[in-house]
Nucleic acid binder design. Structure first.
Lengths: 138, 138
DNA sequence: GGTCATTTGTACGTATGTATT
DNA sequence: GAATACATACGTACAAATGAC
C-alpha cells in the first residue's frame, strides 16, 4: 500500500510521493487523469485537505495541471523551441508574476526566462517551451 | 481597507494582492516579517485557511519565505553571480525536484537552471543566484 | 437553453503536532 | 517548561466550472 497513517512522514507527502513515482516511472503517462479528490479520500482513507495538499505539491513541481470542475492531469512536456542567446544578452530564471502567468498561459510550477539584450530591453519567455542555446562557432 | 468580504475576488487573493503591493512598492522591505497567522485572522477578520492560502501564493511567487515556528518574511533578493553560457551549451528553466531543492537549499518559488554542455553533461544551478550571460566578442 | 451530477475552489471551525524562542 | 508560530489533518458547507443530457 502507498499510505501509512502511522508514519512520521505527513500523509500528503506520502501521497505526493506515490503519484510522483508513478509519473516519473511512466506508469502515469502525460495527459493521464489523477483520481478525483473524492475518489482518493475513499481509496486512501485520507481527508480532502491532505489530498489537495498532495496535488498542490505536484502542481508546484510542474508535474501536474489541475482544471477546475474537471480534474488533475499529468502535464505533457511540450517540445521546446531553441532560442539563441545573443551576444551581449543575459538571462535569468524566475517565477512569473500573476499577470505574466495569465498572459503567457502558464500552468502552476512553470518558471519564466527573462532575457535582457545589449540595449537593456527585456523579454519574458515561457520556461517550459524554451531552450536557450549558444551555438558552437562555425 | 484591504479586504472586502463582499467582493467576488477570493479573500486569499485579496490578501495576497495587498501584501504583494506592499512588497513591490517597497513598503515591506526584504527581510521584513509579515504579521503572524493569528494576528492576521484578527486584523482582517479572515479564517486561518484563507490566510495560509494567501501566504502560500506569495511563497510560490518567490516573494516570501516561511520559517516554521518563526514566521514569514519578505525574501531578500540575493546578488546574482553571472555565469557565461559556453559555446555548444544550452540551458532550460524548470522547477527543482524535491531532492534538488533540498540539496541546493532553495526556497519555495525558486526555479533552477539546467545547463547542458557540449558533451551532454548537465549541471543544475539555483535560479535565484545566477545570471546567464553571453559576452560580446572582443 | 436549462438541469443535473461531478469535480475543483473557497472558507469556516477544530484539534493536535512540531519548531523556535 | 512555557509561549508563540507554523504544519498537518480532520469535518463541514457552499460556490463555481465543466460536461452530459
Amino acid at each position: 500500500m502507498a499510505i501509512d497513517h502511522r508514519s512520521h512522514t505527513p500523509l500528503y507527502m506520502q501521497l505526493a510521493a506515490f503519484f510522483r513515482n508513478q509519473i516519473e516511472s511512466g506508469q502515469l503517462r502525460p495527459g493521464s487523469a489523477l483520481p478525483s479528490e473524492t475518489r482518493m479520500t475513499q481509496e486512501y482513507g485520507i481527508g480532502r485537505e491532505a489530498i489537495r495538499m498532495a496535488v498542490s505539491l505536484l502542481r508546484s513541481e510542474g508535474l501536474v495541471r489541475t482544471q477546475r470542475g474537471h480534474g488533475s492531469y499529468v502535464r505533457d512536456s511540450v517540445k521546446r523551441s531553441t532560442i539563441e542567446l545573443a551576444a551581449g544578452s543575459s538571462a535569468i530564471a524566475r517565477m512569473p508574476t500573476r499577470t505574466e502567468r495569465h498572459n503567457l498561459g502558464l500552468d502552476e510550477g512553470v518558471p519564466v526566462l527573462e532575457i535582457r539584450d545589449a540595449e537593456g530591453e527585456t523579454e519574458v519567455l515561457p520556461g517550459d517551451e524554451v531552450e536557450l542555446t549558444r551555438p558552437t562557432k562555425g
